[in-house]
Computed example of a mutant assay.
Amino acid sequence: MKIIKTISELRAYLGNFKRPAFVPTMGNLHAGHLALVRQAKPLGDVLVVSIFVNRLQFLPHEDFDTYPRTWQADCQALEQAGCDVVFAPSEQELYPEPQGFKVHPPAELADILEGHFRPGFFVGVSTVVMKLFACVQPRVAVFGQKDYQQLMVIKRMAQQFALPIEVLGGPTLRAEDGLALSSRNNYLSAPERAEAVHLSQALQHMAQALRDGVTDVAQLEQQAMAGLTARGWQPDYLVVRRRHDLQTPKAAELADLLTHQGLVVLAAARLGSTRLIDNLEV
């Protein structure tokens, strides 16, 4: 496995290949990341994984400085998973001057849900991914479906800019009790970790209610929020949305959307000081 820290060296090395596959990460890798690496491995003639904690997608009060950085463990895990190249640029390398040019995704997609509670988040994500795409020039890139809205934003960005990149989603990996794997799970205390499973359970209950014929989406969402709040959570949202545009479905279209697997339930909630997100397609 080769470790590359500059854009020029990366481009020179990748000039020997025709179909790079790419998995962008912020490091602190867990089994979910490694599943994406293994998914991407057979899709190209060289596999590049980036490790870069992107300051642009953190709000001033968020955990950029304390975000876990586990370089040695990450490299060891990536080598075992079949990674060919780790691209690990410094901030100075990727942003040698203030990033004045930025990618602004459409408000109807990026200013709702995560974008509402984390203003500017998807500008930061879209900008760094576009820049990493320019560095790696992959033919296929794999992102985790746990970040459902992010995956949709990146897919739309690649489509609208006519990028020659196939953007694929990788299934959410879960612990045995159902908790979605996440780097931020490391922040949870033991009691919080035991409680955390209730986020995925809330989504499962919402999904089952929809399958059972519930059509009052607003009431379903309110009940789910109240249930988590009663357990000591601080939920940002638990919502039912159409998969194709993340907008709220109308009661009249619920049956058709269920028949054609066109719904997704999404959640974000804070447990103690840790904010967790999850989703479940219905």
Rank of each mutant, 00 (worst) to 15 (best):
F87D: 01
G232V: 00
A110G: 12
V23W: 05
V214M: 12
M26L: 13
Q234Y: 03
D74L: 05
A194G: 12
D84N: 09
T70N: 02
F64K: 03
M1W: 11
V125N: 12
L246D: 15
K131C: 09
M206K: 15
A107D: 13
R270N: 03
L151K: 03
A218Q: 09
P106A: 05
H61R: 09
A107W: 14
G262S: 04
F64E: 15
M206T: 14
Q39A: 13
H205G: 01
S90E: 01
C75N: 10
R19S: 04
T25M: 00
V197Q: 14
R275V: 01
Q219C: 11
A251F: 07
Q159A: 10
A31W: 14
N186G: 15
Q234E: 08
R231V: 00
V214W: 10
D256L: 15
P98V: 12
D45M: 04
G44Y: 00
P96R: 00
H260S: 11
R193G: 05
D74F: 04
A141E: 13
L210V: 12
A255S: 14
D84K: 01
V136I: 03
P24A: 05
L36K: 10
F121Q: 09
Q72L: 11
N279D: 12
L266W: 09
D236C: 01
I112Q: 04
V86K: 01
F133S: 04
P191G: 03
F58N: 02
P105R: 02
A110H: 14
V136M: 00
L220S: 15
S200T: 11
M152H: 10
R19Q: 04
N54R: 02
V239G: 00
A255C: 05
E176V: 14
A252N: 05
V167M: 13
A88H: 03
A268S: 09
L14M: 02
H260F: 13
T274A: 07
A267I: 06
M1T: 09
H30D: 07
L246I: 08
T215S: 12
F52R: 02
Y237W: 07
A180M: 08
Q234S: 01
S50H: 00
V264R: 06
H116E: 06
G144P: 08
H61P: 06
D236K: 00
T215G: 08
L199S: 00
G169M: 15
L228N: 09
V53P: 01
A230V: 01
Y237L: 06
Q80H: 15
V217L: 08
H33M: 06
A162C: 15
L59A: 10
P24C: 05
F22P: 03
V142Y: 09
M26R: 08
L263D: 08
